[in-house]
């Protein structure tokens, strides 16, 4: 088994956590005047999968995609500038937090409409097959809410029918906004549904970044070796903060702090951090903090788009 560098994993997990904590800290200043859906608590899924991918692989995400964007190599400065609505942003200030894109590293976009990017990942995989690219796959990220959408079923079916080079990652954080999976699914059987469409599917418990990485790595290998069509993973995870916004919402009655506790206890950040030599860990953290500071400074001093930009990019 090829083992992943714990330093790499820790750097990515720490970076995402700290970027989002910083976003939450800045948010009350109203410098970010657009919704943010924080990934805090769920970083392990994006990090585990992205570390198993290559730069040429394409990922498609959801409105909660800060973690995916950063894990896949999206530019941090451009991301923060985008949240600030600046011209230097990843989307020139025209997308915002919910639509982060960085084509250079295969972050192919995210949608505010649940389930919407799933077939796009499948279409990208169709194009990979069409062109005969061997060492390239597409990965679709969606939540347990995305599974409710009709397009999920249509996409599963077509991907399996065509045996397309795509990995499906269901980030199951139990909630579609504030509605628990229990209130939406007659049976908690997401992986069974995926299998019914004709693809291998596995549920990965415990937000386990090492396991997620290892499964994704093997899945990519099987697909690029031509030994498998689409492969499905349901990754159990938990959103620590509000559905949208910087705070938490355990006082709102739809969930309890007790429900959160095991996930905090099982936090992957200290788990991987503790595998590192303290000096090494501190060095990583220092470097990340410097990078984050620079990114926010870059966003602060970047210009807003000129008013004429309102009308550019409507058409090619």
């Amino acid at each position: 088994m090829k083992s992943i560098s714990h330093e790499t994993l820790y750097r990515s997990l720490y970076r995402i956590r700290r970027v989002e904590e910083e976003i939450a800290r800045v948010y009350p200043t109203d410098k970010i005047q657009s919704p943010v859906h924080l990934s805090i608590g769920q970083e392990a899924v994006s990090v585990g999968v992205a570390e198993a991918l290559k730069p040429q692989d394409a990922v498609f995400g959801t409105y909660r995609s800060h973690a995916l964007y950063l894990a896949k190599g999206g530019d941090l400065k451009k991301m923060i500038a985008e949240l600030y609505g600046k011209h230097t942003g990843s989307n020139k200030g025209k997308g915002g937090s919910m639509h982060l894109i960085d084509v250079r590293v295969g972050v192919m976009g995210a949608s505010a409409i649940v389930g919407t990017t799933i077939p796009q990942a499948v279409g990208f995989a169709l194009a990979i097959r069409y062109r005969g690219d061997r060492d390239r796959i597409a990965v679709s990220f969606f939540g347990d809410g995305g599974v409710d959408e009709g397009v999920w079923h249509e996409s599963m079916n077509f991907a399996a029918l065509r045996k397309l080079p795509v990995i499906f990652i269901c980030e199951n954080n139990f909630y579609a906004i504030h509605s628990h999976e229990r209130a939406r699914h007659a049976r908690a059987n997401i992986v069974e549904r995926a299998r019914a469409y004709g693809m291998p599917a596995e549920r990965i418990e415990g937000n386990d970044v090492l396991k997620i990485y290892e499964r994704a790595r093997r899945a990519r290998q099987a697909i690029t070796a031509g030994k498998s069509g689409p492969i499905f993973f349901e990754c159990m995870t938990y959103r620590w903060r509000q559905h949208v916004g910087p705070g938490d919402d355990y006082d709102q009655g739809y969930r309890t702090k007790k429900e959160l506790e095991p996930w905090v206890k099982n936090d992957q950040l200290p788990r991987i951090g503790n595998l590192l030599a303290p000096k090494k860990r501190a060095a990583i953290e220092r470097a990340v903090e410097r990078e984050i500071k620079a990114a926010f400074a870059y966003a602060e001093k970047s210009p807003f788009p000129k008013v004429e930009e309102l009308f550019t990019d409507v058409f090619a």
């Binding site: 394409a58 498609f60 192919m108 976009g109 919407t116 990017t117 799933i118 077939p119 796009q120 990942a121 499948v122 279409g123 990208f124 995989a125 169709l126 194009a127 990979i128 069409y130 062109r131 597409a138 009709g150 397009v151 249509e154 996409s155 079916n157 077509f158 029918l161």
Partner: peptide, 25 residues
């Protein structure tokens, strides 16, 4: 491979077209 029938999945197949276009087709 260049012209084919599809399942009755207009929603997903439109997304497939968009995804393929994002990949340069």
């Amino acid at each position: 491979s260049r012209i084919f029938d599809t399942p009755l999945s207009e929603d997903a197949m439109t997304g497939v077209a968009i995804g393929a276009a994002l990949a340069g087709l």
